[in-house]
């Protein structure tokens, strides 16, 4: 029963995050909402494992936590350099331009 309550709360939060991802004026609002939805998905998978009494789901949650982190960093890097293979060495140079 408590797992059902947690599941409902997490699903409502994911819906609120989706609304922000649709509304978000800048790309960073959308990435932020996506990151939050990923974190909540980790929780949702864990709670679902307890709800159906199959703790193997925790392995999937663990992998999802890692993929979520790497995915967020990769998306941010892509929008920063427009290229995933970029070495990212012009970091200080770009910063000088911005100042």
């Amino acid at each position: 029963m408590m797992f059902v309550a947690a599941t409902i709360a997490v699903i409502i939060s994911i819906l609120l995050g989706l609304i922000r991802a649709f509304l978000g004026p800048t790309i960073y609002d959308r990435v932020l909402a996506g990151n939050m939805i990923g974190t909540l998905t980790v929780i949702l998978i864990s709670v679902h494992g307890f709800l159906t009494e199959r703790p193997e789901f925790l392995d999937i949650a663990l992998v999802y936590a890692l993929i979520n982190f790497i995915g967020t960093i990769a998306i941010l890097k892509y929008f920063r350099f427009k290229d995933l293979g970029h070495a990212g060495t012009d970091h200080s140079a770009n910063e000088q331009e911005n100042m």
Binding site: L58, L66, I73
Partner: peptide, 25 residues
């Protein structure tokens, strides 16, 4: 799972805010 979230969340948060600042927001 808690440890991973505990260590990756500030890094992702910092990267996001830093990217927004560098982009000129």
């Amino acid at each position: 799972i808690g440890f991973f979230l505990f260590f990756t969340s500030p890094v992702a948060c910092h990267a996001l805010v830093r990217a927004a600042i560098v982009d000129g927001a």
